[in-house]
């Protein structure tokens, strides 16, 4: 009943639309939390604020800085949202997926790493000390979260016995991976925040360096970067559903709705965590990542590997 199959080609076009809607929901929820902290009422204006802000940025003039490297800067800016949409291609909605790649999990990983290059190019290309520092910080952060992230993905692949996302969903028919891979799930959620440079992992765009990578970007460029960040966070939240939360499995409701409900719930959780934490300092997080997260996720992978070997009756 949980079998996921390749959808028709036109479903590829549906991915950016759905991902955009999910991203707008996330951004609107963030606005609601902000408005509550501000002591303002929750009105339609607050919910529509992300759209209104997008409109404002569309009308705003783009600016460029003396001696900036426009080729690299533009490439980086465009790549951020593109990478997010490409990463989301392998996420199944209900029992259909836009592209059921045989190496879907590695694909997601690779597309997420594209953000490294994109953000670095955008930061460097803007020819500003803040952009440079932002790009620099993001790479340091990447080196700290990437290995736990990869180990979390490897754990899922081990449990599923495959790199195909639909196989991971099928393997969770009886028991969701989140139940016996909790460490991998937490590591994945942390890296979801980190790879979309949001929440406690927003050093690359921190207010202490006046927006970092974003500092010099206005108008459409800024819109692409900010939207790209939300799309990436949404893609990661959506990806956690087939990887850990049993895909479309659930009672009563149709499968596609369950996928959406779970994705929205994970996204809501991530946005809420954002509002409850200060930015993690990079040197501390680097040490935490290497000394705590990597050993823990390795241990988790070991446990899962032993269980899988035991279940299949040894070699």
């Amino acid at each position: 009943m949980n079998a996921v199959s390749q959808g028709p080609t036109w479903t590829v076009l549906l991915v950016p639309v759905l991902l955009g809607v999910l991203a707008l929901c996330g951004a609107a929820f963030a606005r609601v939390l902000d408005a509550r902290a501000d002591g303002r009422g929750i009105s339609g204006g607050v919910l529509a604020a992300p759209l209104a802000e997008s409109g404002r940025l569309l009308l705003q003039q783009r600016r460029a800085v003396v001696a900036s490297d426009r080729l690299l800067a533009r490439t980086g800016v465009v790549l951020v949202p593109v990478a997010a949409v490409l990463a989301a291609l392998v996420v199944p909605l209900g029992d259909r997926t836009a592209s059921d790649l045989s190496i879907g999990i590695v694909w997601f990983n690779a597309m997420e790493v594209v953000t490294w290059a994109a953000l670095w190019m955008a930061g460097w290309g803007s020819n500003s000390v803040w952009g440079l520092l932002g790009g620099y910080r993001f790479v340091v952060q990447g080196l700290s979260y990437e290995l736990p992230h990869m180990f979390a993905l490897i754990t899922v692949a081990t449990g599923a016995g495959s790199l195909r996302v639909s196989d991971a969903v099928a393997a969770q028919e009886s028991l969701w991976f989140v139940v016996w891979m909790p460490v991998a799930f937490v590591a994945f959620l942390l890296s979801a925040l980190a790879l979309s440079f949001s929440g406690p992992f927003d050093t690359a765009t921190g207010r202490d360096i006046v927006g970092g990578v974003l500092a010099e970007y206005s108008g459409v460029d800024r819109l692409l970067l900010v939207a790209g960040r939300w799309l990436m966070l949404s893609a990661a939240a959506a990806m956690s559903v087939p990887l850990f939360l049993g895909g479309s499995g659930g009672p009563l409701l149709p499968g596609w709705l369950w996928t959406l409900v779970k994705a929205v719930a994970v996204l809501g959780l991530l946005v809420w965590v954002r509002s409850r934490t200060a930015t993690l300092r990079m040197d501390r997080f680097a040490e935490f990542g290497w000394l705590v997260l990597i050993p823990l996720t390795l241990l988790q992978a070991l446990v899962v590997a032993v269980v899988v070997v035991g279940m299949t009756g040894g070699m």
């Binding site: 003039q61 783009r62 600016r63 460029a64 800085v65 020819n127 000390v129 803040w130 006046v210």
Partner: peptide
């Protein structure tokens, strides 16, 4: 600096080339 494309771009740059202060995004800080 080349003028290709949007001519309005360069108009937002401060005319003075020398400052390297870091007013938030005050431009080419370096």
């Amino acid at each position: 600096h080349d003028h290709t494309g949007h001519t309005t771009h360069s108009t937002t740059e401060p005319a003075c080339g020398h400052h390297r202060s870091s007013d938030p995004g005050g431009g080419h800080s370096m």
